[in-house]
Design a protein around this nucleic acid. Structure first.
Length: 444
RNA sequence: CGGGGUAUAGCUCAGCCUGGUAGAGCACUGGUUUUGGGAACCAGGGGUCGCGAGUUCGAAUCUUGCUGCCCCGACCA
């Protein structure tokens, strides 16, 4: 993409009312624009990041054996009456009526919807287990939206739902998602720590929140330092194997959010030098809820013995739009965003310092074409902005690699490669620069 | 939902107290000089001062009702 043909309305001023860095940076880089409290439009740059995150989540869901489908944003009140949640769910649920006065709602979650689909589609134990997921916009009319996309009212969420014949087997589905989440967050450039979460009336040990550590996190969290160091499961993990050893490795250390925190246990189980007390952002939540919806909504299958069995389910959420903010919270500096490679909106930023200079144009265009041909997505600043402005903008939007092409360097056959994260810059011949960038791209 | 704040140009804000021709910086348009870390100068464009009612000869400014947005608290991916 040529910047001269793009829509990327960056700003120098810090927008009023944006408190935290990620929100400020998303507004300043022109990733999003607010359209109402907690409701945002995604401009081209922001949408690219959102799509990249989605793609990684999708790959890891698929790898774990989950099946993608897509349910609507608008749901009928009927199924919520069936589960009993229509009255339980408070003002957070946006209720609407159509022209025939039929009661509808903008879905805050999809347990009812998926349970209806599954019970109407599956009648035999042979079709279990299944894990189904979708990536869809949700709406929760939060009392107080804040922190930009980190707590919006409208938000993009990946939610998966598992259907198993009994609790024992449901546990296996739960483990699949657990491992899948570890891999997903790792690929997003984050260290997410699974922490035991409140299981409510269901009880048991099958609920975890995945938390990333950040000063602006909404809740206090406590964990063992080891959890920041355990390597995530590799991509050749076989999800059909017994995953228990992995789960044990990740759940044997102390980790709790403030609601579940037990100071005495923390102090006795974790040596003082291994204790981490920090703030955390919840980016995922997995939950086994058993027969809660399948019982109320009569989601049953016939077993081999001819008996009807009520299915056991769990739900598994990832806050996709929240992750955009969370990643920025975890990865920025005073000059702007520092994108992890896997989710950067472009792979490389090419700065043509002097458009109109024949040699600079020629080299910039050549680099642009060659890198694009190798599958690298490039943003080329071919505007007439001054050099200082271009550098500042490129640092602000945080592309991992910058290629700086100036008339002076070009004259002696060199361009400059800058690593956004370290700030290191090196002059290279054009050929070497291309080769190096391609090589480093292929590593990831 | 309770408490507090705020609303003036695309953005950040001043002006309001003490009523009298709507301002600055940044951004934008044209020009000159610049040109490797957010340039200088010249000339421009751009505003129902959130909306309604009232007071007044006259309201961005005073009074009042409403709405949006933001912050603090309890709730949430």
């Amino acid at each position: 993409m040529r910047l001269s043909q793009y829509l990327m309305p960056t700003r120098r001023d810090v927008p009023a009312g944006a408190e935290i860095r990620s929100h400020q940076l998303m507004l300043r880089t022109g990733m999003i624009r607010q359209s109402a409290a907690g409701i945002y439009s995604w401009l081209p740059l922001g949408l690219k990041v959102l799509r990249k995150i989605e793609a990684i989540i999708r790959e890891e869901q698929d790898r774990a054996g989950a099946l993608e489908l897509l349910m609507p944003t608008i749901q009928s009140a009927d199924i919520w009456r069936e589960s009993g949640r229509y009255d339980d769910y408070g003002k957070e649920m946006l209720r609407i009526k159509d022209r025939h006065d039929r009661e509808l709602l903008y879905g805050p979650t999809n347990e009812e919807q998926i349970t209806q689909i599954f019970r109407d589609s599956v009648k035999s134990y042979k079709d279990c287990p299944r894990i189904l997921y979708h990536i869809q916009w949700k709406f929760r009319d939060e009392i107080r939206p804040r922190f930009g996309v980190m707590r919006g009212r409208e938000f993009l969420m990946k939610d998966a739902y598992s259907f198993d014949l009994d609790e024992e087997r449901a546990r296996k589905s739960y483990q699949r998602m657990f491992i899948s989440y570890l891999r997903t967050f790792e690929r997003l450039g984050l260290r997410a720590i699974p922490m035991k979460a409140d299981t409510g009336p269901i009880g048991g040990d099958l609920s975890h929140e995945f938390i990333i550590l950040a000063d602006t996190g909404e809740s206090a969290v406590f964990c063992h330092k080891a959890l920041t160091e355990i390597p995530a499961p590799s991509e050749d993990i076989n999800f059909d194997d017994d995953l228990t050893p992995f789960i044990n490795e990740w759940t044997s250390h102390y980790a709790a959010t403030e609601e579940m925190h037990d100071e005495a246990r923390f102090n006795s189980e974790v040596a003082a030098e291994d204790q981490i007390s920090a703030r955390g952002i919840e980016v995922g939540h997995i939950f086994y809820f058993g027969e809660k919806y399948s019982k109320a909504m009569k989601c049953t299958v016939q077993g081999p013995d001819g008996q009807m069995t009520t299915l056991h389910s769990g739900s598994y959420g990832i806050g996709v739009s929240r992750l955009v903010g969370a990643i920025i919270e975890a990865s920025h500096d005073e000059n702007g965003i520092v994108w992890p490679k896997s989710v950067a909106p472009f792979d490389v930023g090419i700065i043509n310092l002097k458009p109109g200079d024949e040699a600079a144009d020629e080299v910039s265009n050549r680099l642009y074409k060659e890198l694009n041909a190798q599958g690298l997505d490039c943003l080329m600043d071919d505007t007439n902005e001054r050099a200082g402005g271009k550098f500042a903008t490129m640092d602000l939007i945080g592309l991992p690699i910058q290629l700086i092409v100036g008339p002076k360097g070009v004259k002696s056959g060199v361009v400059e490669i800058k690593d956004r994260k370290t700030g290191e810059r090196e002059e290279q011949t054009i050929e070497t620069a291309v080769a190096k960038i391609i090589a480093s791209h292929k590593l990831t």
